[in-house]
């Protein structure tokens, strides 16, 4: 069974997750030209490579970011939003206690504010109903999370340290 590491709940079967698509930086909507906006809304990094993507852990309602090789289908790391700066080397470290300890961006349970914000804004593509044509219906992704309102009813997450290192296993 394929597993993915949820930063809150640890290793879980992939079937518990829903895919939310590539993390994409949003241009300033007031400054962007129509063309830049269309590019942001529609275009994707389609070629194989290492991508940062949104995933949603359904049972606990957790949005997370995974860094995944889309050719080999190998997840290198998962984080709660925000992931570490792209300039930093990705914590691609073996699955051991010490390795995990040396990868703070992955291991740290971020402050609850951020975690909740990330959970309450679904950065996901249209629901897969398949019934009606909905041209151009897209929900902005990454950015929505930081601006998302806090939902008082968001269940508090267990503040346990996730086990193991950042790499997912297949």
């Amino acid at each position: 069974m394929k597993l993915l590491r949820c930063p809150i709940n640890g290793w879980r079967p992939l079937s518990e997750f829903v895919y939310g698509g590539e993390v994409r930086p949003m241009p300033d909507p007031t400054a962007a030209s129509d063309r830049e906006w269309a590019e942001y809304v529609f275009c994707r990094q389609g070629e194989p490579g290492v991508l940062r993507e949104w995933w949603y852990h359904v049972p606990s309602g957790t949005w997370l970011v995974a860094e995944r090789d889309t050719l080999k289908d190998e997840v290198r790391a998962t984080w709660l939003w925000p992931p570490p700066d792209a300039a930093q080397p990705s914590p691609d470290i073996p699955h051991t206690e010490t390795a995990a300890a040396s990868a703070p961006a992955v291991e740290a349970v971020p402050d609850v504010e951020v975690a909740r914000a990330a959970q309450s804004a679904p950065p996901v593509e249209p629901a897969p109903s398949g019934e009606v044509a909905r041209p151009g219906e897209h929900v902005p992704t990454a950015e929505a999370t930081s601006a998302a309102p806090r939902h008082a009813e968001t269940p508090s997450q267990p503040a346990t340290q996730p086990e193991g290192g950042p790499e997912a296993r297949a």
């Binding site: 129509d34 063309r35 269309a38 590019e39 529609f42 275009c43 897969p128 109903s129 398949g130 019934e131 009606v132 044509a133 909905r134 041209p135 151009g136």
Partner: peptide, 18 residues
Amino acid sequence: RFEQYALVGEKGAASVGH
């Protein structure tokens, strides 16, 4: 068509739900 926002929505005719 994408930069013209003139999409041709065919999802409703897809064979299976996606």
